[in-house]
Design a protein around this nucleic acid. Structure first.
Length: 242
DNA sequence: AAGATGTCCAACCGCCATTGG
DNA sequence: TCCAATGGCGGTTGGACATCT
């Protein structure tokens, strides 16, 4: 197999923003011949770029299957939910958003959602995906669309420190006695018309120096939006943690 | 009006798993 | 079996543009 090195030492390699005529060459070549090898494509298409650069330009910009326009609220909700599940595995997240690229989602998350999280006192850098949930189908995501009044996307535990999280009212949460400290939670609440929204609640501050009570929990939630079915929320939480 | 600052995103870099000579 | 090229991925950066002072 012929090798086509693609590295910084190649003096002929062009860099920087793509020019319209380069886009045209790449687009015309791929739509006509397809891609058999990215490494040999630049030469065949008459481009002074490396194969990697061509691949990136096609994947992130020229591919006609890409969706243009701003990311919708539904898409944002999905990104948040999937990020909780998969962490920074952008390519995996992008699989669930047809027409959106991993780069686009990554950029969107880093500059929009991260800022929102900061507003709600969440530090995504501390986030680690819950491997158990990653392995266990789409359970949390399914929850998000099937719970009519209260749903949540994910809970994670941290290995950093242990902290008791209890309910003082005999709920299901209490039956499991002790959990690892819940770090951050995304809780989505839908209204009567099943129009969902996504809000962020920092449970860490609630659990850092105190036992998290049912009323604490309810108070936290009510800070964001009125909740009609706290019991349902507790049940969901208990099911997921057990 | 102009400089400073912030936001956004295209593109590059480096790492790693896979592939195939 | 070894090893270098390749492709894919996530992290990061630089610059264009927008907004603020």
């Amino acid at each position: 197999m012929e090798r086509h090195p693609c590295n910084n030492k190649n003096p002929k390699r062009k860099r920087g923003l793509w020019l319209p005529h380069e886009d045209e060459k790449l687009y015309n070549f791929i739509t006509r011949f397809g891609v058999t090898s990215w490494s040999s494509l630049p030469k065949q298409a008459g481009l002074e770029r490396c194969g990697k650069s061509c691949r990136l330009r096609w994947m992130n910009y020229l591919n006609p299957e890409l969706k243009r326009g701003p990311i919708s609220q539904d898409e944002e909700d999905l990104i948040i939910a999937l990020h909780k599940k998969f962490g920074n595995r952008w390519a995996r997240i992008a699989e669930s958003l047809p027409g959106r690229t991993d780069n686009e989602i990554k950029n969107y998350y880093n500059c929009r959602i991260k800022r929102k999280n900061f507003k709600y006192n969440i530090t995504p850098n501390t986030y680690k995906p819950d491997e158990k949930l990653v392995e266990e189908s789409d359970y949390t995501l399914t929850m998000a669309v099937t719970q009519p009044t209260c749903y949540f996307f994910n809970f994670q535990s941290t290995g950093v420190k242990e902290e008791k999280v209890q309910s003082n009212s005999g709920s299901n949460l209490n039956s499991s006695a002790t959990y690892d400290m819940m770090n951050y939670s995304d809780i989505g609440i839908s209204n009567e018309n099943n129009e969902k929204s996504c809000n962020y609640i920092d449970f860490q501050s609630a659990t850092q120096n105190e036992i998290l009570t049912r009323s604490d929990c309810k108070e936290k939630i009510e800070e964001v939006q009125d909740v009609k079915s706290l019991e349902e929320y507790i049940n969901c939480l208990s099911t997921l943690l057990c």
